[in-house]
Nucleic acid binder design. Structure first.
Length: 466
RNA sequence: GGUGCGGUAGCCAAGUGGUUAGGCACUGGAUUGCAAAUCCAUGAACAUCGGUUCGAAUCCGAUCCGCACCUCCA
């Protein structure tokens, strides 16, 4: 059994073999905290969540770093517009980001470095690049990276440098750069930056975007680490530039594997702030959907495929989750007070192997979910004929808990049944025994108001969360 | 122009030479005081045209269509 992942650098699936053998160090490009993240952004964070969870399922340790970009054009502009200090402005969106992660049941990373706390590291890195001849200062005071000096520039994105020239979307006249494609390491202060400024050996200013990730990743994970992730739109220029900076500075390989997820699209178009076709998580939740339903949506499409977002698929997810929940509830009833697990019943015997086989293949989540649903189906069929012994049911329950360490949506939250609801249920049972249907239906409505649906079965009434 | 990713049933979505993927919806049945919910059953597909093969959704060639990246982007 080996976990194979698609490495953008090699464009092939490779077995995940951590550099140090047991611990996987991964770096994830995080949000720019100038506004609420939209669910397209969370698609990437969801992919990274699945990745770190499955790496752990495979028996490795994980150290994940996700940065917070809290200084750039957008954060500066917005904070000045609102008359707030930069830190105060970004704090609101940093808090919102963590709220949203929790609602989606995304496991926290081990480190969330904010760019503004790593300015000295960035400056040191730029100094090394100067020493080694990769950086130069232009007349406007900004410091640039000379991509001509790095022979391997373009190896991740597989750029055709000639083709780029004819693409000609390069703004030549604005800056005094040796090569139009050179990128900024340090941006000289301009009045529009307000009081957002740091001293450096090259004068006052602020860091460029790409240097952040190089500085923070290497500081927290070491000069060479295992996996670098992001959306496909980060491949170029951001990740290409990170490689150029980091490998030029250290002379060592930067990230061993590069993994990129596809877009979330709406009506066939990429969801993005600039197109305006985006939803924030809170907008979706305000429409009455749960974080778990959104999680199901973002998780169950293969991460490298683009995923079409539509409210009607959230409705479909609700039905699918209900099927899973009904199964879980049924299993729980069979367990009763049993505390010792037995062997798995035959209908669940190969579920784990099927699940792992699919996930091992570059996280084939569809195959993994098929293993889950096939088990539900086979289990329902078997249970309809013969009740499952409590010890076997407990084994199934344990299996589901284990698989849910990866999926994060299989096992429903335990719902406390309030005393009031319990009393209503008893009253209704009495009314039904007396064939007082009007009263029985009235209580059923009352239960519905409190969020519970009651189903009458041969074994008596059962409550389910609406 | 360069570089990638795609087109699978009503919708979503795996699979990549032969055996029912899966989910949602539809329809039928079981169950029920009536419901709701649930469970069971069930049909239907591989963009187009050629080729290779005993056999192609899968391999090869051509064509059509969609999306993305090419210095804000997850």
């Amino acid at each position: 059994m080996a976990f194979r992942i698609y490495n953008t650098m090699s464009r092939t699936k490779e077995e995940l073999l951590p550099i140090d053998g047991k611990q996987v160090r991964m770096y994830t490009c995080g949000p720019t905290v100038y506004n609420y993240a939209h669910i397209g952004n969370f698609r990437a964070y969801m992919f990274e969540d699945l990745l770190r969870r499955y790496i752990k399922f495979c028996g490795f340790e994980v150290v994940q770093v996700q940065n917070l970009t809290d200084v750039d054009d957008k954060t500066i502009r917005a904070s000045i517009e609102q008359g707030l200090p930069l830190k105060e402005y970004t704090k609101k969106y940093i808090d919102a980001f963590f709220d949203d992660l929790a609602k989606l049941n995304i496991e926290p990373a081990e480190h969330y470095p904010a760019a503004t706390n790593y300015i000295p590291e960035m400056i040191s890195l730029i100094e090394v690049l100067f020493e080694k001849g990769y950086a130069y200062q232009s007349d406007d005071g900004s410091v640039y990276y000379s991509i001509d000096k790095f022979a391997e520039y373009g190896k991740l994105a597989r750029l055709d440098r000639e083709g780029m020239q004819s693409g000609a979307r390069v703004d030549q006249d604005e800056y005094d750069k040796d090569n139009a494609a050179d990128f900024a390491l340090w941006k000289a202060y301009v009045p529009e930056d307000g009081d957002v400024v740091w001293d450096s050996p090259w004068g006052r200013g602020r860091p460029g975007w790409h240097i952040e990730c190089s500085a923070m990743s290497m500081k927290l994970l070491g000069e060479s680490f295992d996996i670098h992730t992001g959306g496909v739109d980060n491949i170029f220029p951001h990740h290409e530039d990170e490689i150029a900076q980091s490998e030029a500075a250290t002379g060592k390989p930067y990230s061993k594997y590069w993994m990129h997820c596809g877009y979330l699209v709406v009506d066939g178009r990429k969801m993005s702030k600039s197109l305006g076709n985006f939803y924030t998580l809170r907008e979706v939740l305000d429409r009455g959907y749960t974080g778990r339903e959104v999680r199901y949506e973002l998780l169950t499409g293969h991460y490298r495929q683009s995923l079409n977002f539509a409210f009607k698929s959230l409705d479909a997810n609700r039905a699918a989750l209900k099927r899973l929940d009904e199964f879980s509830a049924k299993i729980k009833e069979f367990i009763g007070s049993e505390t010792e697990a037995d062997e798995l019943p035959v209908w669940a015997a190969n579920t784990r192997a099927r699940f792992a086989e699919a996930m091992d293949d570059d996280m084939n989540i569809s195959g993994a979910m098929a293993a889950i649903f096939d088990t539900v189906h086979a289990g329902n069929k078997a249970i309809a004929v013969n009740p499952t012994p409590g010890k076997e049911a407990l084994a199934v329950s344990n299996l589901w808990k284990e698989l849910d360490t990866v999926l994060g949506l299989l096992v429903p939250q335990e719902e406390e049944i309030s005393l009031e609801v319990e009393e209503l249920l008893e009253d209704r049972t009495v009314a039904r025994a007396e064939k007082n249907w009007a009263e029985s239906d009235r209580i059923r409505d009352a239960l519905a108001e409190r969020g519970w649906t009651v189903k009458d079965t041969p074994e008596g009434p059962k409550l389910r969360k609406l």
